[in-house]
Every structure is written in C-alpha cells, then in structure tokens.
Design a protein around this nucleic acid. Structure first.
Length: 301
DNA sequence: CAAAGTTCCTGCGAGC
DNA sequence: TGCTCGCAGGAACTTT
C-alpha cells in the first residue's frame, strides 16, 4: 500500500498509537524481509521509548529515545495493524499462546505473514505484515541517518519547496520518458505507479513523452511542466486527505482505503471512456519499464 | 496473467 | 582502437 499518501496515512496512524510508549518486547518471526534484519535488532530497541515518527519519501522513520532510528519501508504489500491493550487481551483469551502470532485474520491474512511484533509497555501491540516481503526494516545508529545508503540519494519531497524549476534542472538532459522519470526517486520522491498515471493524465501529458522536451532550451520549465508539478502535488495531497479521513486504529485499513476506496481517473480504467469533457477518447494500457501505464492517447500529448 | 516498489545487472553509446 | 563512465531498460525478489 505504498505511495507517499498511503505511507503518510500509516505514519499518522502509528504516531497516534506509538509516540510516548516504550518498546517492552520486539519479536521477529523470520530472519529477513527484503534484507536480513540487522544484528541484534530486538535487544537494541527494547526498553526504548518512541519519541516521534517521521516520513522521508516512502520510508517511515521511528525515532527512539536514545537517538537510534528504526527505518521501515512497506514495499508492495507491507502493512501495520494496531491492537490496543483491550484487543490484545481479547485475542490472548480466544487464541492463547504468547510467542506465536495470535492475530490471524485481523492482520489481513491467517498470520503466516505477520513478521514483526512490537509490544509496548501499555499492553498494546503493533504487527507488521508483509506477504510479498519487498518491505525493509533496518536500524540506524544516532546521527547516521544522512549516510544511510537507502536514504542518501533520494530527491526532493513534493510537499517541501519543490517546484518546476527544480524539476526542469533534473529533466533537462533526460531522454527517458516522463512517466519513468516521475517514478525515479532521485528526481522526486513519493510518486508511484498510480499517482504518476493520474498526474500525467490530469496534466494532458503523454507518459511516453521524452522528459527533456518539457524543458525549454534556456533551461526553464515549459508551461506543461508547471502544470505537471501542480498536479503531482495536488493528486498526492488529495490522496492524503482521503486516507486521513478514515479511522485511526488500524494503519492497514487507512492505507487500503487510501488506494481502493478512491476511484482513479486513469489508473486501472483500460477501455473505459476518458473523463475529460468533450474528449471522447478511450483509456489505453501500455507497458513502460515493465509496469502498466494508463493514458488517454487523445488528450495526452 | 498482474500487482502498489526498489535494487542490481547488462548492454550500448559517448568521450577520452 | 580500447577503456571507462553513465544512462536506459529489464530482470529479480515473492505471494496472492
């Protein structure tokens, strides 16, 4: 469930549930996700309090009271499910057991993919579930965040002071298609396949258009590039609003609604009519870098 | 057959 | 000519 808006929604959910609590016990049910868990992960974080939870790109950064940071990426299928103390009690009574996953269907599957359990001092628990295991969990020592290999080459946050001028600089010499460029986290972070399609559709830009053709010869952004930047920010903002409007006790419910409770204008609408007034075109699906792109060939140029 | 993400590998062209 | 570098495109990871 992982583009910027979904990760931000999860961040808010975890913030509510975790900040101010201490990690009493952390349990790993396998040795790796996409990468092995760091050496001694559990013992190095147990006893520490959660001070704050931040987001950088599609990564979650969980700040601990001694300066360490838990780095978490949801990959394609990662989710957090939160259980308050009362729910934990209920599950303990009905399912029993202590060291095996008791949450089963509550985390979205039967428990086989519940890889990490964070148990807090107040009796609440956060479970990380990830069937495809493209997710990542790592531990960063205090002050070493800026040199973490996964974070160091990330581009600007779209909700920062990102603008068309900055984007133009990065696209000036790029022959890659604009769709593929938007997915490149070194150019701008947080945009994934769905919102890249949506932003290009709204902007009337063909996803296969060469990136550099959106920059003028003097290096300034074209009007279309200005529009694209506005639409990327708008699409992401609107998605955050939708995700944030739902309940707070299940981070996965938030994330799921963020994607599928919302209907898209282009994504996953192959063979359906273009929604732009008077266009009359039909949404097409093509493949770029092995990923589906949805577009209206009539109004995207 | 496809899937919301990221990293790594290979092949190619440019430039020294 | 031969080598290196960077870019572009594709495969790989895995389960439902």
């Amino acid at each position: 469930m992982p583009e910027l808006p979904e990760v931000e929604t999860v961040r808010r959910g975890l913030e509510q549930a975790m900040v101010g609590r201490s990690l009493k016990k952390v349990i790993l049910r396998r040795e790796n996700l996409r990468f092995p868990f760091p050496e001694g992960f559990c013992s190095r974080v147990e006893g520490l309090q959660i001070d704050s939870i931040r987001r950088r790109a599609k990564y979650l950064l969980i700040d601990l009271s001694d300066g360490k940071v838990i780095l978490s990426h949801l990959g394609m299928s990662g989710r957090y499910t939160l259980f308050d103390a009362q729910k934990v009690k209920q599950y303990a009574m009905t399912q029993g057991g202590d060291e095996t996953s008791r949450f089963g269907l509550a985390t979205g599957f039967d428990g086989r993919h519940d890889h990490v359990e964070f148990r807090f001092d107040d009796g609440s628990i956060a479970v990380y579930t990830d069937p495809r295991r493209f997710g990542i969990m790592d531990l960063i020592e205090g002050g070493e965040e800026s040199i973490h290999p996964l974070l160091e080459s990330l581009g600007p946050e779209p909700f920062g002071n990102w603008n068309a001028k900055q984007l133009a600089q990065r696209l000036e010499k790029k022959t890659t298609s604009i769709k593929v460029a938007l997915l490149d986290q070194r150019i701008v972070v947080g945009v994934g396949n769905i919102y890249a399609c949506e932003a290009l559709y709204r902007s009337g830009i063909h996803p296969q258009r060469e990136s550099r053709t959106l920059v003028r010869k003097d290096g300034k952004p074209t009007k279309k590039l200005d529009v694209l930047v506005e639409n990327v920010v708008q699409v992401l903002e609107q998605a955050v609003e939708v995700g944030g409007s739902s309940l707070n006790d299940f981070a996965d419910v938030n994330g799921t609604l963020g994607y599928f409770g919302h209907h898209f204008q282009a994504y996953d609408r192959e063979d359906q009519p273009c929604l732009k007034a008077d266009c009359g075109g039909t949404i097409e699906r093509i493949t770029q870098s092995g990923r589906s792109t949805f577009l209206c060939p009539r109004c995207q140029r």
